[in-house]
Amino acid sequence: MAAEADMMEASGPAIDPMHQFTLKPLFGEGPIHWYTPTNATLWMGITVLAIIALLVFGTRRRAIVPSHTQSVAELAYGFVYQMVRDVAGKEGVKYFPYIMTLFIFIIFTNFLGLIPMSFSVTSQIAVTAVLAVLVFVSVTLLGFYLHGVKFLGLFWVSQAPLALRPVLAIIEIISYFVRPVSHSIRLAGNVMAGHAVIEVFASFAASALIAPIAMVGIVAMFGMDVLVAFIQAYVFTILTCVYLKDALHPSH
């Protein structure tokens, strides 16, 4: 990472693929207080508006035979609902609105971040960490609330030989606490890497000699980023469902 940063500095400010991830106040200059509206705030607001456009205005006619927008909204609903029911089981359906909130937020910010000159909210480790910690804490609390001390059975592999169980318990506990870390860095890392690579290609495009290759590279990377935008939202959501399932049915 340090070597990469040095390389960026060496090539000067013209190629600074990380610059796009900088938070800036929307109005004027100055320090960023907790309440300052920034470009992140702007794009979160746009996310909310886009969600309203699809899920509220798109479905306002409540048509039996849906319009295109309404079908997309229904598709998103059915996709997440199916996922929650298949992975977390019937009891998990109760938490469907929360998981839908996560999925819709992530997929909208991912796709809005693909708009050129936009700001990608999910590339911020602070955002994904909050999401992951939110999932981690609520799932853990839910597990203890539903099962009490029995929730710790999640770490006690009862099928394994007795001698192995303490070792497995340690491994299980470590893997449990690593969950929010991998959960958050996977999303932010994928989104950030895709955007950074596109910008690197874009900065190469300044030179006429390699511009065609750079253009092809941008198009290819953009295509991949579209996939990543969906897949990472899907992965984040399905992992949330898996964690929820662990909380609902802790026994191995």
Partner: peptide
């Protein structure tokens, strides 16, 4: 200079607005 994402001074701001956004989305959805 390296990764703007790791600038801790911006975290409270992001967390605050993220919380606002998530609550809004959750209200709209539910």
């Amino acid at each position: 200079a390296g990764m703007p994402q790791l600038d801790i001074s911006t975290f409270p701001n992001q967390i605050f607005w993220l919380a606002v956004t998530l609550v809004l989305i959750h209200l709209i959805l539910s």
